[in-house]
């Protein structure tokens, strides 16, 4: 309460770090472009080489913005899940949300050719993938939610989430087994995750979903804070538990679902960022946590993407692998260091 000013400073520092990571992300890539030229393209739209201008405006810039949306969106959905499920290990990936999205996309990319070519042509558009992915993640989240109402045991909910993950991946395997090589390859590339495939138009669509999901989170801040006391107390403070749960589920599945659709499944960012932020600022108040998590997610994703594109080389690592390489050790480190999760 008294530390509001200190937290504001930290938020500005995080904002600064986001801008720095963004600049770093744009200036590094397979083609070596001098930093002054990058700035020249960004701020005066004039460069010595039209190639550089094209690379930055049509490739690096949308990729950097996608990284920001993907990282921050997943981090926000992770934060929502952790508060809602009262479990520090919750996140869109662990709870099977991404697996649900994968199932949806697999059905569209591979199932369409198996079950019928006509329908396949219609749903093949980017929108089809987005809708399938969102529906898939919504389906899994609903199932997990239903289980959480019945069970009330958070560990059981996590296990159910993992069960759904295996279940959906089993269905995906079956689909993969029967689908032609071209579609299979398309799905496999999607599942590696990528933030570099989005055009400005697609970026626009993704940012709409992002905005919608984050706005819901913004207007849920007060209720999220009440939930820190537990559901019974939150109810006694005048909060409508059922409605809020639904609203938070919608926000999470829109964020995680649309991001997974456009960028593929990106592991661990959703779960790890809220914890990383709590290491930087020991805060529970979602008024501070929400913006901090947005910046933190953006920074992590921008850095992961910078690593993934392996500056100076022609190779690009799958972003999903890079986030796991960063995310998994963080989770292990947190568990070992704290022995007990306080959140």
């Amino acid at each position: 309460m008294q530390n509001t000013r200190a937290y504001t400073i930290v938020l500005f520092l995080l904002l600064g770090a986001t801008v720095a990571a963004w600049l770093l992300n744009i200036s590094l890539g397979s083609v070596n472009i001098p930093f002054e030229e990058v700035l020249a393209v960004l701020f005066s739209s004039e460069a010595d080489s039209t190639n550089w201008h094209y690379i930055i405006m049509e490739y690096r810039l949308p990729k950097a913005f996608t990284s920001i949306l993907v990282g921050s969106g997943l981090a926000v959905s992770g934060m929502l899940m952790q508060t809602l499920f009262r479990n520090p290990l919750a996140g869109p990936y662990v709870l099977g949300l991404s697996s649900g999205a994968s199932l949806g996309v697999a059905l569209v990319l591979m199932g369409a050719t198996i079950f019928g070519g006509v329908a396949g042509g219609i749903v093949f558009s980017q929108w089809g993938v987005v809708i399938a992915s969102s529906l898939g993640s919504l389906l899994v989240l609903m199932a997990v939610m239903l289980a959480s109402v019945k069970l009330k045991d958070t560990m059981a909910i996590l296990i159910i989430g993992l069960m759904f993950a295996s279940l959906t991946s089993a269905v995906v395997s079956v689909l993969a087994y029967f689908s032609p090589a071209a579609q299979l390859q398309q799905y496999v590339f999607w599942s590696y995750g990528s933030v570099g495939d989005l055009s400005w138009n697609e970026l626009g669509i993704l940012s709409l979903f992002w905005l919608f999901g984050v706005m819901i989170a913004l207007f849920s801040i007060k209720n999220l804070n009440s939930l820190l006391l537990g559901e019974q107390y939150a109810r006694s403070l005048g909060m409508n538990i059922g409605r809020n749960r639904t609203v938070l589920i919608i926000s999470t599945s829109i964020l995680a679902g649309s991001i997974t659709a456009f960028a593929g499944p990106v592991a661990f960012v959703g779960m790890a960022v809220p914890h990383l932020i709590r290491q930087v600022i020991p805060v529970n108040d979602h008024r501070i946590l929400l913006p901090a998590v947005i910046f933190g997610g953006a920074i992590l994703m921008l850095l992961c993407d910078t690593v993934a594109q392996m500056p100076g080389s022609d190779y690009t690592l799958p972003i999903n692998a890079v986030t796991s390489l960063v995310g998994a050790p963080v989770v292990i480190w947190l568990l070992v260091r704290k022995r007990k999760f306080l959140f």
């Binding site: 207007f219 007060k222 820190l228 006391l229 537990g230 005048g238 020991p282």
Partner: peptide, 28 residues
């Protein structure tokens, strides 16, 4: 209640201030 508050990482003043939730604005 007998139920313990979920977040043990809450500060004392912070937790007491949550009692004001019914009276605060949309963002608390």
């Amino acid at each position: 209640l007998t139920e313990q508050p979920l977040s043990k990482n809450l500060g004392v003043a912070e937790l007491v201030a949550l009692g004001r939730q019914p009276y605060t604005n949309w963002i608390g």
